[in-house]
């Protein structure tokens, strides 16, 4: 799939995953890569960028095993941004789906 397109979607995925609960980087990457094919390394640059833009805050939390984990927490600003993106995405995907449906019907 187109790289730029995927990047935009990746941003949305990360924001959605953080809406209900705080998560750490590994968890975010795994959740996303379970569903869509991504290059896992590119999630961290994204997390950094969105943190810089104040959509997330981060905190370290000890885990029972291994090193402490960096958790990401959605801020109010991030939540607002998520809702913007979500609306855009829904309009976009509805539009594309509609076109596909019409296309498929016309071919039959």
């Amino acid at each position: 799939m187109n790289v730029q397109f995927k990047k935009g979607v990746l941003e949305l995925c990360v924001l959605v995953l953080l809406e209900k609960q705080d998560r750490y980087g590994y968890e975010l990457v795994q959740r996303i890569s379970d569903r869509i094919e991504i290059s896992e390394g590119s999630v961290y640059p994204l997390l950094r960028r969105l943190t810089k833009e104040e959509y997330f805050t981060t905190y370290l939390q000890e885990s029972t095993e291994g090193p402490p984990r960096k958790y990401y927490k959605l801020t109010d600003k991030g939540r607002e941004y998520l809702h913007e993106l979500l609306t855009e995405w829904n309009e976009f995907s509805d539009g594309v789906n509609q076109l596909i449906k019409e296309g498929v019907c016309a071919n039959e």
């Binding site: 750490y24 590994y26 950094r48």
Partner: peptide, 15 residues
């Protein structure tokens, strides 16, 4: 900071 993120990723993955 960046390297730490990836180190964490390796550590959890290896667990």
């Amino acid at each position: 900071d960046i390297l730490q993120d990836y180190e964490e990723y390796f550590a959890i993955g290896m667990e």
